[in-house]
């Protein structure tokens, strides 16, 4: 009885995953290679595609790296400090997850666009794109590092200080290695998420081909002009990149974590 219900549950999960993830992926794959390997390669490596991919990867890397720093600092403040309004701040961290990204995009456009109340116009530049991505991916680093910090009793750090270590040395040799696996996972997730970001970026980037067009918006323009197969080719590159980063960051994080049990 129990066995059969477990089998049924397994089947259901497999069916659901197939419906939601595997079938669309297969469709994407078929579409990308619709006109053969040559046309896939040409579409993926056209100058406009390469420029868009380069811009996307650069901005995503910058945003993920910056958030690794800012996110870790935020997690520290949330875990180790006590101040008025802390729980409110803690709740706000999740806002980028909950907010429709288009709303973020419009907000950034009005704040830092051509009609900026501060006269700061970063539309059409990599800075604008990076800032938008930073906003969307902030929760990843915070929410992965935070629970690890909470689980540290502080005794290992105290032990290091009784052995003569300065606070910075303690952080470098004890605290940082403890949070490193979580930090890698969080940064990997943020980077993977950033590669496909569309809504928050689309207004502020101005979408100038070869200059300020991110991959997702290039894919959108390809589909709009009926070049579905080319769009699928570029999309497949993005997908592969995201998948590789996710797998790599997970493998490294797990290896680090396994050694310490």
């Amino acid at each position: 009885m129990e066995k059969s219900s477990a089998a049924a549950a397994k089947g259901l999960v497999l069916f659901y995953i197939s419906l939601i993830v595997l079938i669309p992926l297969a469709a994407l794959l078929t579409n990308a290679f619709n006109h053969g390997l040559g046309s896939f390669w040409n579409a993926a490596t056209s100058t406009e595609s390469l420029d868009a991919l380069r811009l996307t990867v650069t901005c995503s890397l910058l945003a993920a790296a910056f958030n690794a720093l800012a996110g870790t600092a935020t997690a520290f403040v949330l875990v180790r400090d006590h101040f008025w309004g802390k729980s409110a701040l803690n709740a706000i961290i999740d806002l980028p997850f909950a907010l429709p990204t288009v709303v973020a995009g419009v907000t950034f456009y009005t704040l830092y666009g051509p009609h900026s109340p501060f006269h700061v116009n970063i539309t059409g530049s990599w800075i604008g794109i990076t800032v938008a991505i930073m906003f969307v991916t902030l929760p990843f680093s915070v929410r992965t590092v935070q629970p690890v910090l909470e689980s540290l009793s502080g005794d290992a750090e105290a032990a290091a200080s009784t052995l003569g270590a300065s606070s910075f040395y303690v952080f470098r040799t004890i605290t940082f290695p403890a949070i490193l696996p979580a930090l890698l996972t969080g940064t990997g997730l943020a980077f993977a998420r950033a590669l496909g970001e569309y809504g928050s970026v689309v207004f502020i980037s101005n979408n100038l081909p070869y200059r300020s067009e991110v991959a997702s918006s290039y894919i959108y323009s390809l589909v709009s002009s009926g070049q579905v197969s080319s769009a699928a080719s570029v999309a497949l590159i993005l997908l592969t990149g995201a998948l590789l980063v996710l797998v790599a960051s997970n493998v490294i994080a797990r290896r680090l974590a396994r050694r310490r049990g």
Binding site: S153, A156, A158, P177, G261
Partner: peptide, 8 residues
């Protein structure tokens, strides 16, 4: 009390 080992 919990020995506070440096786990890594």
């Amino acid at each position: 009390q919990d020995y506070a080992p440096f786990r890594h």
